[in-house]
Amino acid sequence: MKHLMLALLLGTTALPATAGEIWVTNEKDDTISVIDTDTLEVTRTIETGERPRGITFSKDYSVVYICASDSDTVQVMDPNTGEVLHNLPSGEDPEQFVLHPNDRHLYIANEDDAVTTVVDTETRQVIAQINVGIEPEGMAVSPDGAYAITTSETTNMAHWIDTESRKIVANTLVDARPRHAEFAAGGSELWVSAEIGGTVSIFDVESKAEKGKIKFEVKGVHPDRVQPVGFEFTEDEKTVFVALGPSNHVAVVNAETYEVEDYILVGRRVWHMDFNGDKSHLFTTNGVSGDVTVIDVAKRKPIKTIKVGRFPWGAAYRP
């Protein structure tokens, strides 16, 4: 049986180079569902530690990092075999993380501990722990690597961490329950979603002042239920897709004018997302319905729903 599995695995990796995969963490199944971006089918289900949430690949895709929140560890996995190579010390309850452009330092939000932990993936040592607000979650790092951002859900702030000194150099207030952060416009803007506030705020990185705020309005859904969480930019950074949680919609936003151009109906409680290789398809994790919606990016239409595990949370692409 084992040999057969291995043969199958080798078989999939031998597919043409265009074939990519979306890796989805299933928070309440302790597994990852691997979706083939061409066939749009689940090809593998891989066991992980307890309560997998944040997921990201190393630059060369040779390893995948997984926040196993309830195991209090970050797992380092060989994506070809699904074998856990080793665990990284992560601090308690790691929820979400970001890999520094140096491909070496992981900045991890420890949700239950009000701490951001910095781990060196080579020496496997914690190199810093930074006190942040309560329930840190959203993590981002600027393209030049100078800033790491942690957003804290109960403190309602974005904390700007200088990656040299590993100290907080600024705190900016955001709306209630910030969930996700991303740098944009070549690193000159920081975008932060606020779940309970129902907004996405845009900050000027230079001055750290708020320069815009996006509000959402989904027809037939009470504003209280429109709760922005994860978001992703298209390749040209002109468009951003924002998951709106229990409103079961993804908003399409013009990243230059900050105007909402469209809303796309997806599965229930849409959380995070990632694109396929050429960014023609977007894959959203829908926690409550336990599936992934595939969106045709050009047409802005959902084209398929893929059943995955219980409470899919994070999504990450690998070629």
């Binding site: 109960t154 403190t155 309602n156």
Partner: peptide, 10 residues
């Protein structure tokens, strides 16, 4: 203690 965390930053 929830307030104090935000307060500490402000």
């Amino acid at each position: 203690s929830d307030n104090a965390t935000t307060g500490g930053f402000m």
